[in-house]
């Protein structure tokens, strides 16, 4: 028999695996992409989705109680702060004169 607990566990596993996969992609992007701006793409987007999906998975597992509110607040915090830190750092890089990498010139900064 499939109980509600089984459905809850299955949802948690699927969402958490999805999030962990995106964390892995973010890490590979951070190590592999050619320059800072491209790395910021990988870092902001993949980490937002990875952390968001993992935290929602944990909230689903936890069920309805006071801790779940905190986990949802954490997910919201990550969703809001991750693009903002991306902006702040990209602006700092741009204003200190870091030039982006171009494919045709093939040079690394």
């Amino acid at each position: 028999m499939i109980s509600t607990a089984d459905i809850r566990d299955a949802t948690t596993v699927v969402l958490a695996a999805f999030g962990a996969l995106f964390f892995l992609v973010g890490t590979i992007g951070l190590l592999r992409l050619p320059d800072f701006y491209a790395r910021t793409h990988a870092a902001t987007k993949c980490d937002t989705v990875g952390a968001g999906s993992l935290l929602i998975a944990l909230a689903v597992f936890n069920g309805l109680d006071a801790s779940t509110g905190k986990i949802i607040a954490l997910a919201g915090l990550v969703l809001l702060s991750s693009p903002t830190t991306g902006h702040a750092l990209a602006r700092a890089a741009h204003r200190t004169g870091l030039a982006p990498w171009h494919a045709e010139k093939g040079r690394t900064p």
């Binding site: 992609v25 992007g29 701006y37 987007k45 993949c46 989705v49 982006p100 990498w101």
Partner: peptide, 24 residues
Amino acid sequence: SVLMAALQVAEVVLDPQMPIDPVI
């Protein structure tokens, strides 16, 4: 669109050729 963006970055990162040509 966040989800789409992450999937698209994943596609770029996991492609061995890395088909990017960044511009500002």
